[in-house]
Design a binder for these strands. Sequence first.
DNA 1: GTTCTATCTGAACGTTTGTTCATATACGGT
DNA 2: ACCGTATATGAACAAACGTTCAGATAGAAC
Lengths: 195, 195
Amino acid sequence: MARTQGSHSDITGPRIRKAALGLFARHGYAAVSMRQIAGEVGVQAGALYNYTPDKQSLLFRLMHDHMLELLSALGELPVQKDPTAALRQFIGFHIRFHLQRPDEVFIAYMELRNLTSENFAQIEILRRQYEDILEGILKTGQKDRVFSVADTKIATLAVIAMLNGVMTWYRTEGRLTLDQVEGVYWDMVRRSVTE
Amino acid sequence: MARTQGSHSDITGPRIRKAALGLFARHGYAAVSMRQIAGEVGVQAGALYNYTPDKQSLLFRLMHDHMLELLSALGELPVQKDPTAALRQFIGFHIRFHLQRPDEVFIAYMELRNLTSENFAQIEILRRQYEDILEGILKTGQKDRVFSVADTKIATLAVIAMLNGVMTWYRTEGRLTLDQVEGVYWDMVRRSVTE
DNA sequence: GTTCTATCTGAACGTTTGTTCATATACGGT
DNA sequence: ACCGTATATGAACAAACGTTCAGATAGAAC
């Protein structure tokens, strides 16, 4: 019989994950202790174990939730028949979604090696799904002769890598607006996949 | 008076750095203990302190040496007056140099946050120097109207990010030769910076 | 008002951490 | 053959680690 009021469990759980997210992103999974996370939440270390079986599961949950959100948000975009429009939409989505979640993205790319092999395999499947969607766009465009790349798989990875680079330098207080950034990257990506 | 023969110091030092390099790359700086490094070298943990004042300095040295090598190797390339030739040469150099040193590169990009702020600042200066060389090529090409990018700084970062992506998937036993990979990336980069 | 239970504390556990240091070893110089 | 010293050992240090758990606390249910 779960409590509906006065209980802290509905609040403490998310707060723990939020604290862990920030600390993992800033210092790395291995360098963050359960006591640091607890301290940020204002609770003793033992209390964390009401919300996660162990530290590893905490990391996995953060990454897993993030990937599900990513795929779900991408799936909600309107279908674009034109490959160019589809690619354009993907670029904009990717940049905005990732810039809104710098910590999640950072962890998703940096902490893969700290997952157990079972957990790693699960995340990899989700990541592959995301890549496959972009590659599908490129393949369609290739077939329609609107895109021209030597290898759609490499082009997919190259585009994603290029886009992810934006997170290492973009700051909201910088000299470029989000629209401008999107425009610059779209220009470069579009030209890189067309003759 | 340093020993010239029979001494292990000339051998143990490099072996320690090599072991640390591999372990840091595979498991991350924070997740690797001095005892693991020592074990890989076949020595007790205390012996490491004849070669490094502490763990942090060991990491810094690896990153620092790598950056110096990178800049030095780049500096030895023949000067190319033509911006297109210069860019082409840079792409090839970057891909080959980095693929030859996967561990060093991985550490240089992943372990920045585990450096003390003083050490971080030093590495950042070197990295900036490398980026500036690429941006110089783009600027020259821009001036000569052979390249056309909205922003040379962003284009620089985008190109480097794109190239670095190759290390996440390239395997020597894969279906593409190094020459082919270089060709594919050169095609994409060239098109992304020209009209 | 009593009971029940979800939640948290605080101490404890056995390991492991980075680092230090007195001591041992073995080689180079003389 | 002896000395000096570069190099390694192996034990020790305090601190921090992830995790467990008996007990305190306080709100919900009746």
